[in-house]
Amino acid sequence: MATITLKGNPIETSGNLPKVAAKAADFKLVTVDLSEKTLADFAGNKLVLNIFPSVDTGTCAASVRNFNKEASSLKDTKVLCISRDLPFAQARFCGAEGIDNVVMLSDFATGQFGKDYGLEITTGPLANLHSRSIVVIDENGTVIHTEQVTETVDEPNYEAALKAL
Score class of each variant (00 low, 15 high):
Val153Leu: 11
Val149Cys: 05
Phe52Ser: 10
Ala40Val: 07
Ala96Tyr: 06
Asp100Asn: 15
Thr110Glu: 01
Leu80Met: 12
Gly58Ile: 04
Lys28Ile: 12
Gly44Ile: 12
Gly58Trp: 04
Ala160Asn: 07
Phe27Ser: 09
Asp138His: 11
Val149Leu: 07
Ala161Asp: 10
Asn50Met: 04
Val102Phe: 05
Arg65Leu: 11
Lys7Ser: 13
Phe113Gln: 02
Ile121Met: 14
Leu86Met: 11
Val64Met: 04
Val149Met: 03
Lys23Ala: 15
Pro53Tyr: 02
Asn16Phe: 09
Pro125Ile: 09
Gln90Met: 15
Ala62Glu: 12
Ile144Lys: 08
Ala2Glu: 14
Ser63Lys: 00
Arg65Thr: 11
Leu162Pro: 12
Ala25Thr: 13
Ala89Pro: 15
Ala2Asn: 14
Asn9Arg: 08
Thr5Trp: 02
Thr122Glu: 09
Ser83Asn: 10
Gln112Met: 04
Val64Asn: 00
Asp56Met: 10
Ala43Val: 01
Gly111Tyr: 00
Asp41Gln: 02
Ser63Glu: 14
Leu119Ile: 15
Ala2Trp: 02
Val149Ala: 03
Ile99Trp: 07
Ser131Ile: 09
Gln90Phe: 12
Ala127Phe: 11
Leu49Ser: 12
Phe67Val: 13
Met1Gly: 08
Cys94Ile: 06
Ile99Arg: 04
Gly111Lys: 00
Arg92Leu: 10
Phe27Lys: 07
Ala2Phe: 07
Thr146Cys: 04
Leu105Asp: 05
Ser131Lys: 09
Val64Ala: 01
Asp85Ile: 09
Asp116Pro: 06
Ala96Met: 05
Ser72Asn: 13
Ala22Ser: 14
Thr122Val: 15
Thr150Glu: 12
Asp138Gly: 12
Ala21Tyr: 09
Asn66Pro: 01
Ala71Ile: 11
Thr13Val: 08
Ala21Ile: 13
Ala109Met: 08
Pro18Cys: 00
Val103Arg: 00
Asp107Thr: 00
Gln148Thr: 15
Asp33Thr: 00
Asn45Pro: 10
Ala21Thr: 14
Gly95Tyr: 04
Arg65Val: 15
Ala164Asn: 09
Asn157Thr: 09
Val135Phe: 10
Lys69Gly: 07
Ala62Met: 07
Ala40His: 09
Leu29Pro: 10
Asn16Lys: 13
Pro10Met: 09
Ala91Asp: 14
Glu151Lys: 05
Asn101Ala: 14
Val48Gly: 07
Gly95Ser: 13
Thr38Pro: 11
Val103Met: 02
Ala127Gly: 12
Lys7Asn: 07
Thr13Pro: 03
Phe67Pro: 11
Thr57Met: 01
Gly8Ala: 05
Leu49Ile: 13
Ala43Asn: 07
Ala61Leu: 11
Asn101Leu: 10
Lys37Glu: 07
Val79Pro: 08
Pro53Lys: 04
Ile134Gly: 06
Pro18Trp: 01
Ser72Cys: 06
His145Pro: 07
Asp26Asn: 15
Thr3Ala: 03
Lys163Leu: 05
Asn128Phe: 13
Pro53Thr: 02
Val55Phe: 00
Met104Gln: 11
Leu119Ala: 09
Thr152Trp: 01
Lys46Met: 08
Pro125Cys: 06
Lys75Leu: 05
Lys163Thr: 15
Pro87Asn: 12
Ser14Trp: 01
Glu155Lys: 11
Ile144Trp: 04
Cys81His: 05
Thr31Met: 13
Glu147Gly: 07
Ile82Met: 10
Gly118Cys: 06
Ile99Ser: 01
Thr110Ser: 08
Lys115Val: 11
